[in-house]
Amino acid sequence: MTNAAHGKRILVVDDGMTTRLYYRSVFEAAGFAVDEAANGLEGLERALLDRFDLLIVDVNMPKMDGYAMIARLRGDSAMQAVPIVTISTEAEGRDADRAYEAGADLYLVKPATPAQLVETAKLLTGVVA
Rank of each mutant, 00 (worst) to 15 (best):
A4E: 13
A5P: 13
G7I: 04
R9V: 08
V12A: 04
V13H: 03
D14M: 01
D14K: 00
D15S: 08
M17W: 13
T19N: 12
R20C: 01
R20V: 03
L21Y: 11
Y22D: 10
Y23D: 03
S25I: 09
V26H: 03
V26R: 08
V26M: 06
F27M: 11
A29K: 09
A30N: 06
G31S: 01
F32A: 08
A33H: 14
A33F: 11
V34L: 01
E36V: 09
A38D: 11
L41A: 15
L41R: 15
E42I: 11
L44W: 06
L48G: 11
L49F: 14
F52D: 05
L54D: 04
L55V: 04
D58A: 07
D58Q: 08
P62Q: 05
K63N: 15
A68L: 02
R72D: 15
D76A: 09
D76S: 10
Q80P: 05
V82R: 00
I84M: 05
G93F: 10
D95L: 13
A96E: 07
A96R: 06
Y100W: 06
E101V: 14
L106S: 08
L106T: 09
L108N: 09
P114L: 02
E119T: 12
T120C: 04
A121S: 06
L123Q: 13
T125W: 00
V128I: 13
A129M: 11
